Computed example of a mutant assay.
Amino acid sequence: MIEVILKKGKEKAAVLHHPWIFSGALDRIKGKPENGEVVSVWSADKEFLAYAYFNDQSRVALRLLEWNENTTIDKDWYAEKLKNAIAARQHVLNEETNTCRLVFSEADFLPGLIVDKYADFLSLQILSSGIDAVKEELIEILVNLLQPKGIFDKSDAGARKHENLAEGQGLLWGEHPPEFIEVKESGIIYHINISEGQKSGFYCDQRDNRQILAAYTKGKTVLDCFCYSGGFSLNTLKAGAAQVTSVDSSALAIETLQHNMGLNGFKQADQFSIQSDVNKQLRIFKEEGKKFDVVVLDPPKYAPSRSALDRAARAYKDLNRLGMLILEKGGILATFSCSGAVDMDTFKQIIAWAALDAGREVQIIKQFSQPEDHPVRMSFSEGEYLKGLLLRVL
């Protein structure tokens, strides 16, 4: 096996079981590994550190897999990792919920692999050259473990560019997914399309948070911003919200939400859908003097990297300021960030600035996080991307 030796003093991350080593930490390579090849990683003092995927096209030159030198990275190793990841999620799936994340990349010791279950179909994202090199083996293992109707490739994420991989999408195994797969989450039905576009039309990482928020909405007027396919809207209606207004800039999102409303038997009179830029619409509500009891702010990723943090902080602050201004006194604000570059302390500071600018006092009721099928390894805090706050705005 080809050996990669790190520079003196650059072994700390590997020793602490962090799964990334950046290209600047590499001293020399004994051989010429292919991108995606498994290599052994050694300290400058010739101590074995780990086995890793190698990629000289990525800033993350080494993605660490295994710290036991006596272990062989083969098909049995992959089968064990997949089996363990799937077994850990089995209790999430039941009569009320048939969709969840089965494999979450570094959190499950498979850096660059994401597997989502949508009823009888699987969606794969392959984001590293190492996983791409063993794709066929992984598909075979997943078929044996889960017997899905079909497996679809959603590896069109921009992350593949960092690994010098072409974007890809298409059927990998079995039946082609129908136009709409019917999934259930917490007893609510959604029709999603995983074979078109970059997204599935549904995010399962907000599963727990949707139910937590819904408990505060009975008899209330709710504004769901960036509503997408309607996860928060539908959960609040199920919980007895008096009226829900849903806003998204995407016509497809609004169409999907309205379709899902009908699937669940909710009356259109209880819900209003607005296709509009959220910030623009919040300003319109403010000018009109419109007030809500509950506001949900679940924007897309404003900070894809740390270099975008300052710009993202300004965007988050202005969005939350507007949300606070249209809340009734004592109203509830559920606000989120899915930017990994924004940690919880930073997010709280941003919300504090927004409250100051809005002239409102704010109490933190709960902190939101990602659900257990999106676990966070203690040695890899970067995996904690979703955070949020449930606030009372006075």
Results as ranks from 00 to 15, higher is better:
residue 3 E to H: 15
residue 7 K to Y: 05
residue 21 I to A: 05
residue 28 R to E: 07
residue 34 E to R: 06
residue 51 Y to R: 08
residue 57 Q to W: 07
residue 60 V to P: 10
residue 64 L to C: 09
residue 71 T to A: 14
residue 77 W to P: 09
residue 79 A to G: 14
residue 83 K to P: 11
residue 83 K to I: 05
residue 85 A to Q: 06
residue 86 I to L: 13
residue 87 A to F: 14
residue 89 R to D: 13
residue 89 R to E: 11
residue 91 H to F: 13
residue 92 V to F: 06
residue 97 T to G: 13
residue 101 R to P: 10
residue 102 L to D: 06
residue 104 F to G: 04
residue 106 E to T: 10
residue 107 A to S: 15
residue 118 Y to T: 05
residue 119 A to P: 04
residue 120 D to E: 11
residue 125 Q to I: 04
residue 126 I to V: 13
residue 132 D to I: 03
residue 136 E to H: 11
residue 136 E to C: 09
residue 151 I to P: 02
residue 153 D to Y: 15
residue 155 S to F: 03
residue 156 D to L: 09
residue 159 A to R: 10
residue 160 R to P: 09
residue 163 E to L: 00
residue 167 E to D: 11
residue 168 G to R: 12
residue 173 W to P: 10
residue 185 E to L: 00
residue 191 H to Y: 05
residue 193 N to F: 01
residue 198 Q to W: 03
residue 199 K to Q: 01
residue 216 Y to E: 09
residue 218 K to H: 14
residue 221 T to P: 04
residue 222 V to A: 07
residue 222 V to C: 07
residue 223 L to A: 03
residue 225 C to I: 06
residue 231 G to E: 01
residue 235 N to K: 03
residue 238 K to Y: 02
residue 239 A to C: 11
residue 248 D to P: 05
residue 249 S to N: 12
residue 256 T to L: 06
residue 265 G to Q: 10
residue 267 K to C: 13
residue 269 A to R: 12
residue 269 A to G: 14
residue 271 Q to W: 04
residue 272 F to G: 15
residue 275 Q to G: 01
residue 284 I to V: 15
residue 286 K to P: 14
residue 287 E to V: 09
residue 292 F to P: 05
residue 292 F to V: 08
residue 293 D to L: 13
residue 296 V to G: 06
residue 296 V to N: 10
residue 297 L to Y: 04
residue 297 L to F: 04
residue 297 L to E: 04
residue 299 P to G: 08
residue 301 K to G: 00
residue 303 A to S: 12
residue 305 S to A: 08
residue 308 A to Y: 06
residue 314 R to A: 15
residue 315 A to N: 04
residue 319 L to F: 15
residue 320 N to H: 05
residue 324 M to T: 07
residue 328 E to R: 07
residue 329 K to C: 11
residue 336 F to H: 04
residue 343 D to T: 13
residue 345 D to Q: 14
residue 345 D to F: 11
residue 353 W to A: 13
residue 355 A to P: 02
residue 356 L to Y: 12
residue 362 V to N: 04
residue 369 S to Y: 13
residue 369 S to G: 14
residue 370 Q to T: 08
residue 371 P to Q: 03
residue 372 E to W: 01
residue 373 D to Y: 00
residue 376 V to G: 06
residue 381 S to C: 12
residue 391 L to G: 03
